[in-house]
Nucleic acid binder design. Structure first.
Length: 414
RNA sequence: GCGAUCGUAGCUCAGUUGGUUAGAGCGCCGGUUUGUGGUACCGGAGGUCGCGGGUUCAAACCCCGUCGAUCGCCCCA
């Protein structure tokens, strides 16, 4: 007999089961409920797109595009990519399907995303996000609506110790002026910065601001602030967002050094981050952002569309599930035990089961293994009631208070 | 891409300074006990000690490589 080797799962993928899978499902179900509460419409998106959808939308020089995409050529020699995020694909769909007619369009979706990264706590190569976008809305009210939804979602999930960190990157011009000032400021002290930040100075100077290296920290404190570069419009926009959040009862804090990694962000940028020392921070490790997003007014043009304002966010389902903790799988209402292997007992069990299930009760059968141990097996599964079937009859065994409607049905079957 | 730690039954782990047929608990399967019950006892299945090389008379244990996991950095959700 030749022994066949079992193939291993692909690095960074996970097989989620049991209590963890329940937590995952709870996150998705809660999102779906809240999505409808805010009247975001459901969209289903392809898992892969032409590579250019992402390279143009996200930016060639970003880490995501330059080294983290799962790209491949299909049989027609076309370069395709497994989606590393939702936003670019949704933007493409908005343009190619004429969804402009629905603007302002509120949509939500969830599913798997793929990024070739080194796996660690809260970070996987195939991971899952929930996502919400408002496309074709230039008003700050859209930002408020979107953030109120995110805030409510976290509350409904029962997640505590997480705060909305909010910043503005200003409009395109403000952002460029600020960026130039930062480059000038950090270039003057380049030699004293960390190696990483010296590199960031070339590629992504905004990122220096949230460097964890203490060598960078002391310079970050005195770095030029975005506020000094904001146009009047940009300032007014941000004020409208913050006062809207206050009115909606969404708690937030200003995070002047919060920036987003992807090129397309403008104006509002935000992340929900666990408070230091909280249980949530503990559970997440260093991958601490659970929900992040912002306004991406420039994105549609990069895909060849008309200028279209939009805001959105995405949240990692795995990370949310870690904060939700394990959720128990619901026990059965009734377990039907077949106490001997006679056709009589077996067929009565099927009758009882189908009756219960037709009535909407959760029911399961125990009919294998040693007959004498079947009852114990049923007891261990922790059902509300146990129903026994044997050749010499059948009967109910329940302790105390069971659902009256269930009791009535069981009585009838008894 | 860089660094650290780790990898023994389905699960959690033990395995003494390298020394004969690799162990426990839980779980699973079966039997006995009990007999209206999640008890106790007995037995069984299940491991080429992640994989591949090397050192040695001898390797789960030492060395190298590789794959994977975990935790950081980077990046991000």
């Amino acid at each position: 007999m030749s022994k066949t080797k079992t193939p291993q799962a692909i690095r960074g993928t996970q097989d989620i089961f049991g209590a963890q899978a329940e937590a995952f499902a709870f996150v998705v179900e809660t999102f779906e409920r809240v999505r409808k509460l805010y009247r975001f419409r459901r969209v289903e998106m392809p898992v892969f797109e032409k590579t250019e959808v992402f390279s143009r939308a996200i930016g060639e020089t970003t880490d995501v595009v330059s080294k983290e995409m799962y790209s491949f050529e299909d049989r027609g020699q076309e370069s395709l990519t497994l989606r590393p995020e939702f936003t670019a694909g949704i933007a493409r769909a908005y343009l190619t399907n004429g969804w402009q007619q629905h603007a302002p369009l509120k949509v939500g979706t969830h599913g798997p995303l793929f990024r070739y990264e080194r796996p660690q706590k809260g970070r996987y190569r195939q991971f899952h996000q929930i996502d919400a976008e408002i496309i074709g809305a230039a008003e700050p009210q859209a930002d408020v609506e979107l953030l109120a939804m995110a805030d409510q979602l976290l509350k409904e999930l029962g997640i505590e110790g997480v705060t909305l960190h909010l910043n503005t990157l200003g409009d395109g011009d403000s952002r460029e002026a600020w960026r130039a000032a930062l480059v000038e400021y950090f270039s003057a002290v380049k030699g004293k910065l960390s190696e990483d930040s010296q590199e960031r100075l070339e590629k992504n100077p905004l990122r220096i601001l949230d460097s964890k290296d203490h060598r960078d920290r002391k310079f970050v404190a005195d770095a030029p602030k975005i506020d000094a570069f904001l146009s009047d419009e940009a300032t007014a926009f941000f004020d409208a967002v913050t006062s809207g959040l206050d009115a909606a009862g969404v708690k937030w804090m200003r995070a002047e050094s919060l920036v987003r990694g992807l090129d397309y962000y403008r104006h509002t940028a935000f992340e929900f981050i666990p408070d230091e020392g909280s249980a949530a921070a503990d559970a997440l490790g260093s991958q601490s952002t659970i929900l992040g997003g912002g306004r991406y007014d420039g994105l549609m043009e990069s895909l060849g569309g008309a200028p279209t304002p939009a805001v959105g966010w995405a949240a990692g389902i795995e990370r949310l599930a870690m904060l939700v903790g394990e959720r128990v799988e619901a026990p059965a209402d009734v377990i039907v035990v077949v106490e001997d292997d006679t056709p009589n007992a077996q067929s009565h069990a099927w009758f009882v089961l189908s009756t219960l299930r037709d009535e909407g009760f959760v029911a399961e059968m125990v009919a294998t293994g040693s007959p004498r141990k079947r009852y114990d097996k049923a007891v261990k599964r922790g059902a509300e009631a146990i129903f026994k079937c044997s050749s010499d009859g059948h009967g109910l065994s329940a302790d105390g208070n069971i659902d009256p409607r269930l009791a009535e049905i069981l009585d009838r079957l008894n």
